[in-house]
Design a protein around this nucleic acid. Structure first.
Length: 424
DNA sequence: ACAATGGTCC
DNA sequence: ACTCGGACCATTGTA
């Protein structure tokens, strides 16, 4: 499907998507076995701290509601907010059972009642405690190491992580980094974190042969700033923080098969504005527009699309009468080659790096092994002897950025530290 | 045991 | 009326 890209400078190794999956299985097993060391005391200290705050917030919320109810229950929360306190429901999303109390909706009510702010903070903190701080320490082995399990059964070719899921460890917010600080290197070792920057946008630029995007990545410009200059019709140097934020959402949306409504919801603008931004975007990015049309056409005609390495995803409903299902599958047809090819790049890099590390490790004693211990979609984490950290960081960076030859650079950011948060 | 709701990540 | 890709997991409430 993508063989024509060869003339444009894309060189694929002799491996198929299925071949990659067979080759990565032993790599994943090794990573599962290796695990990652957790500072349980650190987590439990943070848990206590958050629990104290949660207690205070709970008292505050119940007092402001002037009744007793279960804050963790969306239905009871809706009852209190919209029946007892009579907060306005217009413009709020609804669920099957009533008015939504999702954080995104509650934020719209922040000015209406002082109960909203403590509720949002309570939600945030109780999420961190119940999903991460409490369960993770229960799962460590005798060496304080956490062993996730990796799965290969996704519709796009990405990996999954479960029991526990280590691919959704917090990073944003007030406490995200504090939690990542508890993912530590063993004594005498360092962690290395290496991630691809904007790999999905680089992949779609390549698949679509979109001139504007290829130029941006070749010259190393800030891709979101460039998009902002295109949709706001201003010079790149005049782009404001907020314009860049909007442009970033547009770029993300491209990869997702975005609709004006979806974009408007994502960044809180009107659908009219969203229509304008998307229209102006496609006026410049004709390659992307064509890519989208081609994937939709192919999915309708052949019933599937595929990734760079030939992974196929089928769309059984795309020619059916259910419009919603068909449109949903059209968006998947746009996204799957992008997300799936990016996943294949990372898998191939993992296979190559694992082999390289094996060669390197053959010279050292068991205690000084350099191991790949975690993968999070576009990021790899390693635990390596302190003395070899810089040398191995360089190897990882080189292997990741040269994993296959694209017409544009594949940039990699590498960081070394004593814990995951420090690797930036 | 299961669905609904909500939330974390890329 | 409703909507942008891919996952996993905790809690509540119902069956």
């Amino acid at each position: 499907m993508w063989s024509h890209l060869k003339e444009k400078g894309v060189e694929l190794p002799k491996i198929t998507s299925g071949g990659i999956n067979e080759k990565i299985k032993p790599v994943l097993s090794e990573m599962e076995e290796a695990g990652i060391r957790i500072d349980c005391d650190g987590l439990s200290l943070l848990e206590q701290k958050l629990n104290n705050r949660i207690d205070k917030l709970e008292k505050e919320i119940l007092k402001k509601a002037d009744c007793d109810f279960n804050i963790n229950s969306p239905s009871q929360m809706a009852e209190v907010l919209f029946k007892k306190l009579k907060l306005p429901v217009d413009g709020l999303k609804r669920t099957k059972s009533g008015v939504s109390t999702a954080a995104q909706e509650l934020r719209k009510l922040a000015d209406q009642h002082e109960i909203i702010s403590p509720i949002l903070e309570h939600r945030e903190l109780s999420k961190l405690v119940s999903t991460y701080l409490k369960p993770l320490p229960l799962l460590v082995d005798e060496n304080s190491r956490l062993h996730t399990h990796y799965g290969l059964e996704t519709t796009t070719g990405r990996l999954t992580s479960f029991e526990p899921n280590l691919q959704n460890i917090p990073i944003k917010g007030k406490y995200g980094m504090e939690i990542r600080r508890a993912f530590v290197a063993a004594p005498g070792m360092k962690l290395i974190a290496a991630d691809y920057s904007q790999v999905e946008l680089r992949v779609v630029a390549t698949l679509a042969q979109d001139k504007s995007m290829l130029d941006a990545f070749t010259s190393g410009t800030d891709i979101h700033a460039k998009t902002a200059s295109e949709i706001f019709h201003i010079p790149e140097v005049e782009v404001t923080h907020d314009q860049r934020r909007v442009a970033k959402a547009v770029n993300f949306g491209i990869v997702y098969g975005q609709t004006p409504f979806g974009l408007s919801q994502a960044i809180g603008i009107s659908t009219e504005e969203a229509v304008k931004y998307i229209g102006d975007y496609f006026a410049v990015h004709t390659g992307i527009k064509e890519y989208i049309n081609e994937m939709i056409a192919k999915a309708h005609k052949d019933g599937y699309v595929e990734t760079l390495f030939g992974f196929k995803r089928y769309f059984p409903e795309i020619n059916g009468r259910a419009r919603y299902l068909a449109e949903s599958e059209e968006r998947m047809a746009i996204n799957t080659p992008v997300q799936g090819s990016a996943a294949e790049l990372l898998k191939l890099a993992m296979i190559k790096i694992n082999s390289k590390l094996k060669t390197q490790n053959s010279k050292v004693e068991t205690e000084k092994l350099a191991r790949m211990i975690l993968t999070v979609h576009d990021e790899l984490v390693f635990e390596v002897p302190e003395s070899r950290a810089e040398e191995i960081a360089k190897i990882v960076e080189d292997e990741m950025s040269s994993v296959i030859k694209l017409p544009i650079p594949i940039e990699v950011t590498v960081g070394v530290g004593d814990n995951w948060a420090e690797c930036k």
